[in-house]
């Protein structure tokens, strides 16, 4: 190799790297996931959420045009970001995280979206996809532990048989509300007396949904992402 060739080769490599490292950051990356929740009538509801991340400084920006967000949900979003950053090793202060709920007339409350939001963030950060027909419910802590939430049976009932619902450990068996009513007579009046019992129920058997328990974000990601 001549001196000229060597110099040009060096220059080409340097310019290539320079262009690579000074190009604009990639545009916003987005992924669609779901919150599995319950509505005011204690029925299940599946809410589509668009999650995006862009270069920024650690903001958690939530579209408030449709739903309003109760403070415990705000807390769970903050925790989800911290857990996903911890899991993937990124500095969350280098990005802004944007959440847009794509449903009208819902009010978002409670911490149960934390796990699914954390999984979506991991998918974004690691450029992975969420498996079709896989949903999650669970609260999340900063160290990635997934903890119990309510209404597992109602949430499973929003899904179709064969779909997958990932739940916190120990929640594969939910509780079912059973109303036991009987007619009674008092003097000349007849009335109905109802007792409500809560009985354990295997959510998978009851709904046909495949229910999988996880302890932490690592296990959730293993099952939910591809």
């Amino acid at each position: 190799m001549t001196k000229t060739q060597a110099v040009l080769l060096l220059i080409s490599v340097l310019i290539g790297f320079f262009l690579g490292f000074t190009s604009p950051e990639p545009a916003a990356r987005s992924i669609t996931t779901h919150m599995v929740g319950v509505n005011g009538q204690n029925g299940g509801i599946l809410v589509r959420v668009r999650v995006s991340m862009i270069p920024g400084n650690g903001k958690i920006l939530v579209n408030i045009d449709n739903p309003l967000f109760i403070t415990d949900t705000q807390e769970s979003l903050r925790t989800a970001v911290k857990a996903a950053a911890e899991y993937t090793g990124i500095n969350s202060n280098d990005y802004d995280f944007i959440f847009s709920v794509e449903e009208d007339n819902v009010q978002i409350e409670g911490p149960s979206a934390g796990a699914s939001m954390a999984a979506a963030l991991v998918a974004l950060i690691e450029n992975k996809q969420i498996k079709a027909h896989h949903y999650a419910t669970g609260s999340i802590t900063e160290n990635g532990s997934i903890t119990a939430v309510g209404s597992i049976l109602e949430k499973a009932e929003t899904l179709s048989p064969g779909e997958v619902l990932i739940v916190p450990a120990g929640q594969k068996v939910g509780t079912e509300q059973i109303e036991d009513c009987s007619e009674k007579q008092s003097n000349n009046y007849y009335y109905k007396e109802c007792k409500i019992k809560y009985e354990p129920v295997d959510v998978s058997e009851k709904t046909g949904v495949k229910v999988i328990e996880v302890n932490n974000l690592a296990e959730l990601v293993q099952i939910m992402l591809e």
Binding site: I64, D65, Q74
Partner: peptide
């Protein structure tokens, strides 16, 4: 044309304030 509230600061944003923004 969307409106976003920033939930990353130390202060939670009350729902009445979210409505005020809109």
């Amino acid at each position: 044309g969307r409106v976003f509230a920033d939930f990353s600061t130390g202060a939670y944003v009350g729902t009445d304030l979210q409505e005020s923004i809109l």
